[in-house]
Amino acid sequence: MNTLLTLASEAPNGKFLPGDMKEFYWGLISFSIVFGLLAWKLFPVIGKALTAKGEAIADQLAAADKAQADADVTAAALLAKLGDADADAEAIVTDAKSTAVTMVSDGKAKAETDAAAVKTRAAADIANIAAQATAELRNELSSQALAAAEAVVNNNLNDATHGSLIDSYIEQIGATS
């Protein structure tokens, strides 16, 4: 409209409106027709395109919001997992410490048991060795004592002693009959 007014202002008669009104009316009618055609054919297409574009933008915004929400959920899950990992690590450390304490305790108990068994075996071995030594000493003493007794007996066995032994034997048999 401004352009038309400008054009009109530059008319040869120096007035705003042309001197020939017919030109004005034809121009107005042509403009109206062009405008009507545009409004009839082009404006709806443009409107639809703008609507589609708006819907697409809205969809994109919704998708972006959903992606943001998903990202937030994922982030929360990751944070939760990190928390769980920390808890797991702490549990593992706690278990390891407990296991170490148990192993030390068990090892100490086993060492004490082994030491007690060694002491018991050693005591038994000492007792056996002592008993064996005592028995050997006793056997040696008895052998020597017996050998000495035999030597004494043999040295003192003369005819008179033999005769006495035989007579004593005969008397004992006679006495027991």
Binding site: I166, Y169, I170, E171, I173, G174, T176, S177
Partner: peptide, 10 residues
């Protein structure tokens, strides 16, 4: 003799 007699008695 004495031994024989003692044994015989027994």
């Amino acid at each position: 003799s004495r031994l024989s007699a003692a044994l015989a008695k027994q």
